[in-house]
Every structure is written in C-alpha cells, then in structure tokens.
Nucleic acid binder design. Structure first.
Lengths: 203, 203
DNA sequence: GTCTATACGTCGATAGAC
DNA sequence: GTCTATCGACGTATAGAC
C-alpha cells in the first residue's frame, strides 16, 4: 500500500499507461472540438470521432461533464502557455485578450457557456467545482492587478478592488453571450469603455 | 373564416377552451417552478407535477424548450405588472430591480441561465429566439434611458449609449451567475459602482 | 380539439466478459 | 484496460379514444 494509487477516490488515469492513454484521448477530443465546434457534445458522438467507445471515455474521465471540463481546462492551459499574460494591462483588457484567444477555437466559447450554465444547476458537481474555482481564481488575480494599478495611479483609487474584479469578469462573460447571439454587439468596445471608466478618464 | 384562428402556423391553444386550458397548465407549471426551483425540468417530471401526461404538454407548447420559454416569459410579465418600472432610475439600477424580482422566485434565475446557454447552441430555435429578442429589447430600452439621462446631464455624455446598454446588461447577467455560485459576491454593490462610474462621480 | 397510450431513437451510466 | 450488452430516463412523434 506504499505508493499504491488505490487510496484516492479519483483513481482514474493514475497508472503510467493510464495517464498516457488519457492524455492521448484528451488530445483527440480537443482536436475534435477545435475542428467542428461544440455540436453534438454527447459521449457517444465524441467517442466515435475520437475512435473509442463511449464506455472508454467514462472509464478515463468518469462522466461526460468531467470530460468537458478536462477539454476546456486543457485548451485554456495551452492558450496560456502559448501567449503568456503581459504584465502591464488594464483589467478589462486582460479579459479581452483571454476572450479573443478562446474565440479562435470554435466551440470553446459555447463549451464555457454550457459548463457555466450546468454549474448553477444542482447535481452537476464537476461543472460546479470548475466554475466556482475559475471565478474565485480570476477574481483574486484581477483584484490584485487592480490594486497594483491603483497604487501606481493608473486606476481610480476610490474603487473596491474586489468589486471591480467581479464587475470586469461579469462584463466580459455577459458581453460574450450577447456577442454570440448578435455579432454586431461590440464586445471589445464595451470593455474598452469600461477600462476608461475605471481609469477615471474625463473623455 | 371570419375570426377563425386556423390561419396562423402556431395553431396551438387558440380556441377559447384551448387557451384557457393552456393558461391553466402554465399557471401550474409556474407554481411548480416557484415551489421547488428548477430541479428536474424534464417534460415528464413537469407533467407529473402539473397532473397531466407529458404528451399533453407538447400538445399545448410544442416542445420542452417552448414550455420553458413560456414559463419564464409569463413569470417576467407578472413581475413587471406587479411592480411597474420607476421612470427615473439609472441604467444599472433598473437591471438591479429586475434581478431582485427574479431572485424572489426560486428557479427563475436558473431557468434564465439554462435558456441563455441553450440559445447559443445550435438547434435550439425557441431559446435562441427568446434570448435574441430579449437582449435586443433590453438594449434598446436601456440605450434610450441612457440618452435621456445624458440629455438631462445626469450621465456622462461622452459615452456611446448602445455600448453602455450592452455593458450594463452584461454586467448584471454575469454578476448574477457569479452570485449564484458564490453568494459573497456583491451583485448590488458592483452594479451601484458601475452606476457611479457612468454618472462620472469623482467619488 | 383535447388528451392518452404507446413506440422510437438517443442519451449517460454501469456491469461483466475478455 | 477496453469492449459489448443493457438499463432507465429522456424528447419527440403519432394513432386513436373521447
């Protein structure tokens, strides 16, 4: 029982060969989403395109929702390492950059929306954990960024950093939804305006 | 054929008895959502609680999604007529009022989120029409409100009204999502801050 | 016209063969 | 470790009772 992996509840994909195979399947799944968007996100449809049975997917990922979370997380991770975050940006700008990267991969924005909607329903633990953790992390990062900008005088210092963080994330998410339904909605323009408001520009 | 209702493509629930029965079922469905939230929003589950077969629901509403849209629309309509919109409010404040009303009915916020998420997927025509129309109407209303406030000097007049409208709606929706996942997120506080930014307050 | 009964295909999940 | 087989629940469609 020394280093046996049987102790944990999440016993999937822990053996050397298992993790390799899991990663291989995840790679294919990401490729599938990148190629054909988020249509037909059923276990069976993904399994067919990946080249395995749907039972194999549940074997490695536990459930459809955990697979979707894994696909989104891995896609986001790759985006981040491809183009690291610039250090000196305004809050809304950093959300804009992230949104732009996501939009380059078809289906990723829809996938995010599906996961977020599932998260606020009951009995969707995987999506709930994903969304809660993501929002908490984002709010912390952006609030810190806001405080930096405030201390260097590039942002109004009469604003609560935590509130600004929540507001900027909310604006970005909400604008993305509106933009998906109506591409004439100026997602970037609205975020730029928010940045100007936060900076306290008179114009 | 004078006042015959057969002309339209949506021929459901148009005859006197039909509309009455449809309304009756809708009332029960709304009551069900108000009582137990948005858990188990399947046709069969709703039908059982309403006291009909699931086929009766599709008879009157065409599909599950159309039923959900009808429930949300009717709930929203009743909120609006119960407490009419004050005429002299800031943009974010009016979204706050609407959000507050929705939050008093369990399941309505989740229902809205489900519909919005479905709308941005393909092959969900009912949800797509609902969300597109709702956003378009809201953006128009708020943009108009913004212009009024600008002309009376209570809002910075260097801001594009359409952008402000999209931003305020996005912020409200996004904050609601974050609040559902983490009640410590100050939905109202963030919207108040946005209102102050839009007004151009120095403090 | 209103509504039930029934059937069809697909879904996520699971058990057991190999 | 991965498959086949199977389960119950789902949305939808239709035939026919009333």
């Amino acid at each position: 029982m020394t280093d046996s992996p049987v102790d944990a509840s999440r016993a999937r994909g822990r053996y050397p060969k298992g993790v390799a195979r899991r990663q291989e399947i995840l790679d294919r799944a990401i490729e599938v989403f990148a190629r054909r968007g988020s249509k037909k996100t059923s276990l069976r449809a993904i399994a067919q395109e990946v080249g395995v049975t749907h039972a194999a997917l549940t074997h490695y990922f536990g459930s459809l929702e955990e697979l979707l979370v894994a696909v989104y997380r891995e896609s986001e991770r790759r985006s981040d390492e491809t183009e690291p975050e610039p250090s000196d940006v305004t809050p809304a700008m950093s959300m804009r950059i992230a949104a732009e990267k996501n939009r380059s991969i078809p289906g990723l924005v829809q996938l995010y929306s599906i996961l977020t909607a599932n998260a606020i329903e009951d009995d969707h633990p995987a999506a709930q954990e994903f969304a809660t953790a993501r929002f908490a992390r984002l709010r912390g990062d952006i609030a810190e960024q806001v405080r930096d900008l405030q201390s260097s005088g590039r942002l109004r210092d009469d604003l609560d950093a935590a509130l600004v963080a929540a507001l900027v994330i909310a604006a970005s998410d909400g604008l993305q939804t509106q933009w998906l339904l109506d591409p004439t909605v100026d997602h970037e323009g609205a975020l730029e305006m928010l940045d100007r408001l936060l900076a306290g520009d008179a114009t």
